[in-house]
Write a protein that binds this DNA or RNA. Structure first.
Length: 307
DNA sequence: AAGATGAGCAACCGCATTATA
DNA sequence: CTATAATGCGGTTGCTCATCT
């Protein structure tokens, strides 16, 4: 009760908290007559017990006529993510690029997303999660034109080596592209079958053209229709590569990449970041016989072009 | 059924910048 | 030119409602 009093008004007798319909009407009528601005005059002229800042906020974020209503579309969300990559937390600048959306709306979306991802151990934005240590070094760039920056950025910091522990392999499809990228310029890809043997993926019961899949039951925790695995090459630009190298594609989709035990989501940014130090510092961890191909297992619904 | 928890959202706060007297 | 007011921006809080235990 006491708390409510504090929240509803400040010491100047001006109201705080949620706006009522009557207050909205007063404010809207004021703006209609006088235009935007002079927000401090609203309370003086209309008897609206709100401070100027509060009036401005309410108008810009809720009452203005050209505001879009409803949740952000997938396109809008993707745009925000891209904008954040280039602009950083400049919400008002982002709002200019998203007509009908307010800086507050965009900020809320981002913060909610950020919170979710932190919970999952993911950085808010995959591009920025790892900084390129040598911005000028572009010796590999041409070879990986279809690989996103973050992966490219780490290529020249990794080294080739001979061994990797089974657990690292088992956990990480992610380590593989990371180190393979560097090998591309030197070594040809291994055939997928060899990788399967080497890494003991016991999943594959069938072969169809250039990918393999299995129909055995996926983990019950996910509503999956099938499970498939496909070699991914950093040099290719197919659907799976697109998904794998651009984790933001997965946002708001029903497709999930998860590890072979069905326990953890695969996320390029997460795993690259998690293993960044390891791969950078311990070159002996990188297997000799991983060359160009990695596997991802997709659990999901309705992936076009697949059974 | 009820309390706990969490997501989403609206709104406030403090600081920086800009306008005005 | 300077002091003050107004506005703008980004960080943060806190309320509401839905879901979970």
């Amino acid at each position: 009760m006491e708390q409510d009093k504090v929240n509803e008004s400040d010491t100047n007798g001006l109201k705080k908290g949620q706006w009522s319909t009557q207050e909205d009407e007063i404010l809207a009528a004021y703006v209609k007559e006088h235009g935007e601005g002079n927000w401090n005059l609203v309370s003086k002229n209309c008897g609206l017990a709100r401070c100027g800042k509060s009036c401005r906020f309410r108008w810009l974020n809720h009452l203005k006529s050209d505001l879009k209503r409803g949740p952000l579309s997938i396109e809008e969300k993707q745009k925000i993510i891209r904008l954040y990559d280039t602009l950083g937390p400049k919400w008002s600048k982002m709002a200019i690029e998203l007509p009908g959306r307010t800086d507050n709306e965009i900020k809320n979306f981002w913060n909610i997303r950020k919170r979710k991802r932190e919970k999952e151990g993911l950085p808010p934005l995959y591009h920025r999660s790892i900084k390129h240590e040598d911005e000028n070094n572009s010796k590999f760039q041409d070879s990986f034109h279809n690989v996103p920056n973050m992966v490219q950025n780490n290529v020249d910091n990794t080294s080739i080596s001979n061994n990797i522990s089974p657990t690292l392999i088992k956990r990480g499809e992610i380590e593989i592209p990371y180190m393979k990228l560097e090998m591309i310029s030197e070594l040809p890809p291994l055939p997928p079958s060899l990788e399967i043997q080497n890494f003991e993926y016991p999943l594959f019961s069938n072969t169809m053209s250039n990918y393999e899949y299995t129909t055995y039951s996926p983990p019950t925790l996910m509503e999956t229709q099938y499970e498939m695995s496909q070699p991914i090459s950093p040099r290719s630009n197919g659907m799976l590569e697109s998904i794998f190298y651009n984790p933001n594609i997965l946002e708001d989709s029903q497709i999930k990449l998860i590890d072979e035990e069905g326990k953890n989501p695969i996320s390029l940014e997460k795993d690259v970041e998690a293993n960044y130090g390891l791969l950078k510092n311990d070159t002996n961890k990188i297997p000799n016989d991983i060359k160009d191909t990695l596997y991802a297992i997709i659990y999901g619904k309705g992936i076009p072009g697949f059974p």
